[in-house]
């Protein structure tokens, strides 16, 4: 008798369990866009760092667990960024941040890209607070690349007031 009842209940229960799955309430670790950029990173690679039209930004440190290298190729006449490449050592969010940064700078003017804020990247990727430094690093990488390009151009123009290039990028 008891067995019969319990079997009935179990049978019902298992059917019920199949139909009404509990709604997923677990917090998401990564936003879809982070996963997407991590799985299919855009613009991975390197440009010739000795090319005068290429600016290289290298930021972060291995000891901190994040290093980003962002390179931009600039059209000298229009001042437009025609190509961008990145390489990143770091967590998934760092890779996604630099991938996004490389996409965003493409086809933009130099003055325009330095206004890209880390908060915009963080918002786009829904980065949690512990990962905000990844977006800051991406912003720094953009600025360092632009700075490097401008320093290179100043040097080739023979200007006496050449800004010192980013040390890390030169090495």
């Amino acid at each position: 008798m008891l067995r019969l009842v319990s079997k009935k209940v179990l049978g019902l229960a298992s059917q019920e369990g199949l139909v009404s799955r509990p709604v997923q309430v677990l917090p998401r670790m990564y936003h879809e866009r982070v996963i997407d950029h991590y799985d299919k990173p855009r613009n991975v690679g390197s440009l010739d760092k000795n090319d005068p039209t290429v600016g290289t930004g290298l930021v972060g440190a291995p000891a901190c667990g994040d290093v980003m290298k962002l390179q931009i190729k600039v059209d000298e006449v229009t001042g437009k960024i025609v190509d961008a490449r990145f390489k990143t050592f770091g967590c998934g969010s760092a890779i996604a941040s630099s991938s996004v940064a490389s996409e965003w700078v493409k086809g933009k003017q130099l003055e325009e890209v330095v206004t890209i804020k880390n908060t915009e990247i963080a918002k786009y990727l829904s980065l949690p607070p512990v990962k905000l430094h990844c977006s800051m690093l991406a912003e720094d990488a953009i600025k360092a690349a632009v700075k490097d390009y401008e320093a290179k151009r100043a040097k080739s123009n023979g200007s006496a007031t050449a800004a010192p290039a980013a040390k890390a990028a030169e090495a």
Binding site: A61, K167, A168
Partner: peptide, 10 residues
């Protein structure tokens, strides 16, 4: 050599 580079610390 990575150790020779002056890394900017964050």
């Amino acid at each position: 050599n990575i150790k020779d580079i002056q890394w900017s610390q964050h």
